[in-house]
């Protein structure tokens, strides 16, 4: 059993719901990201999504686009991201997944991505622009290294696609709350709840809901029907707001603790 599955099993046993924060690697720089990851783990993250910055983040709204731009100024590659994860692993066992566009992984080499992930303690990979039809060789590389492949499903996904994805997915399934790109929204749509129940027809995996969740009320609402909630842009926006300040990791940690309803606080 992988660390992700273990984490969700543990939640289930204790009757709690999961919390999955997202940050972009290298925003504002890799050293700060390393400290932020430890803060997120300490704040009680079930899984951490670590974004690999990309020049053309077409599935992302302006907040995460800007984070990518800030990170890319440092001109690092996946190698440096893996080294950072290795350092975090010495102090934390919270599962970490890479959240990436396909091209940086493809250029690094998909076998190498899988091998390095296992070596440094990355637990799974989510590729926003890799469809299950095209994912076969990457899927095999990940499975051969006991890594989870996380897929996105959207309210527009047909039953046939949900079924196809359920067959390939492991770890958890990421349900996008509504059609669109990443970014905070005023309300989480009723579509999300409907999507979660549709996914449950095809898969027993835990389901996380994300895209647009930015405050404690929304977190609580989503945790009512989903197994976990993903918060990305709201945290990234906070990192952006804190630019130039001291103790950014601690402040991000405090921000994240504030998002969590009492019940899931650690």
């Amino acid at each position: 059993m992988g660390r992700i599955t273990e984490a969700f099993e543990e939640l289930k046993t204790s009757g709690r719901k999961g919390f999955i924060p997202y940050v972009t690697a290298g925003d504002p720089d890799l050293t700060t990201t390393e400290a932020i990851l430890l803060e997120l783990a300490n704040a009680g993250a079930t899984v951490i999504e670590l974004g690999v910055p990309f020049s053309d983040p077409m599935a992302d709204g302006p907040v995460i686009q800007r984070a990518s731009e800030r990170a890319l100024k440092h001109q690092f590659g996946l190698d440096e991201i893996f080294k950072m994860v290795a350092r975090v692993r010495r102090q934390s066992s919270t599962p970490i997944i890479l959240f990436s566009y396909f091209n940086p992984l493809l250029q690094f080499g998909i076998e190498r991505v899988a091998k390095m992930s296992r070596e440094v303690g990355v637990d799974g990979v989510l590729v926003t622009d890799l469809t299950p039809e095209e994912a076969e060789s990457f899927y095999r590389a990940l499975r051969a290294n006991d890594l989870d492949m996380i897929f996105l499903v959207a309210p527009t996904s047909t039953d046939a696609r949900l079924e196809l994805i359920a067959k390939k997915a492991s770890g958890f399934i990421y349900a996008v709350s509504r059609a669109g790109v990443t970014g905070t929204r005023d309300s989480v749509s009723v579509e999300a709840e409907r999507l979660v129940s549709r996914v449950r027809n095809f898969s027993k995996l835990p389901i996380a809901v994300g895209f647009g969740i930015s405050n404690r009320e929304q977190v609580g609402d989503v945790q009512r029907y989903a197994d976990a909630v993903v918060v990305g842009s709201a945290i990234v926006h906070e990192i952006e707001r804190l630019a130039g300040e001291q103790d950014i990791p601690q402040k991000v940690g405090a921000f994240v603790r504030d998002l969590l309803p009492e019940a899931v606080q650690v």
Partner: peptide
């Protein structure tokens, strides 16, 4: 060869796969 905007084709890019 690389992947950009839902297509695999030749892409001008750096060593890290940034376009």
């Amino acid at each position: 060869p690389g992947v950009l905007q839902g297509t695999m084709s030749y892409v001008l890019q750096d060593d890290h796969g940034q376009v």
